[in-house]
């Protein structure tokens, strides 16, 4: 589904990704872990199409399409979704109108008719329940006055509404208490099918107790330095990153 080959990217002249390779197939959950500054959020931003980042080399294909040439909205229409680490507040833009526009513009991109009001409301009700979003929140302005937990829940709610093929969760666990974490993880698990995939970017193993990955990758200095199964996350929790990165440091 997603194939990243030798991806190099920089921000403000500083190279962050140094030849990253990653293959993701439908039905898989991948966790990307790594110390601060290793390039985890940069990877998420580059995939979503944030303009402050410059791709210096390599390629990213999503279902065979080169997505690096696409605008952020086109990537979304192709089925890519980024849950932000810091979802921003947009006063005056209603959550619901925004989602209605997003869904319909994605449908237009795919050559489909607009969704009927009835179908939209049905989906809205279903997905609100799925992520246990409080009734008022969907009707408010995007994230305005939401608590940290509510903002993250709103990210998963939007993901549920948009039904992406590949979701990238960027530090979705940061700032969540254990109950909120469980609700968010539960939402993600229930949205999982054999046709979609998830990338979970996280600092801590904690989230992976709830969202169980098929693969765990360690990102360090802009490259994946180790890949393993879910037990790798436990090992990292126990030993930290030093034992993995020592070798890289010596090489450098």
């Amino acid at each position: 589904m997603l194939s990243i080959k030798n991806l190099k990217a920089s921000v403000e002249g500083k190279q962050i990704l140094n030849g990253l390779n990653l293959e993701i197939k439908a039905g898989e959950v991948h966790a990307i872990m790594g110390p601060n500054g290793s390039g985890k959020s940069t990877l998420a931003a580059v995939l979503a199409g944030r303009e402050d980042f410059t791709v210096e080399g390599g390629e990213v294909t999503f279902d065979g399409k080169n997505i690096l040439e696409l605008a952020p909205e086109e990537r979304a229409a192709e089925g890519l979704f980024l849950a932000f680490q810091y979802p921003i507040e947009i006063p005056g833009v209603s959550n619901i109108n925004f989602l209605k526009t997003a869904i319909n513009e994605v449908r237009e991109y795919k050559g489909l008719e607009k969704m009927t009001a009835k179908d939209f409301l049905k989906r809205l009700k279903e997905k609100k329940e799925l992520v246990e979003l409080k009734d008022g929140l969907a009707n408010r302005s995007v994230n305005e006055g939401f608590s940290g937990g509510e903002k993250k829940r709103n990210e998963i709610f939007q993901m549920a509404m948009l039904e992406p093929k590949l979701a990238i969760l960027d530090e979705t666990d940061s700032g969540l208490d254990i109950d909120a974490l469980r609700i968010v993880a539960n939402g993600v698990n229930r949205l999982k099918t054999k046709d979609n995939a998830t990338i979970v970017i996280t600092h801590y193993q904690r989230l992976l107790d709830y969202i169980v990955p098929d693969f765990v990758h360690v990102l360090y200095q802009g490259k994946i330095v180790k890949t393993g199964g879910k037990e790798l996350a436990l090992e990292l929790e126990e030993k930290g990153y030093d034992w993995l990165t020592k070798n890289e440091k010596e090489l450098a």
Partner: peptide, 12 residues
Amino acid sequence: ALFYLRSRGVSE
């Protein structure tokens, strides 16, 4: 805000 909206599929 512009990027946030676009990343959800809303045109520029």
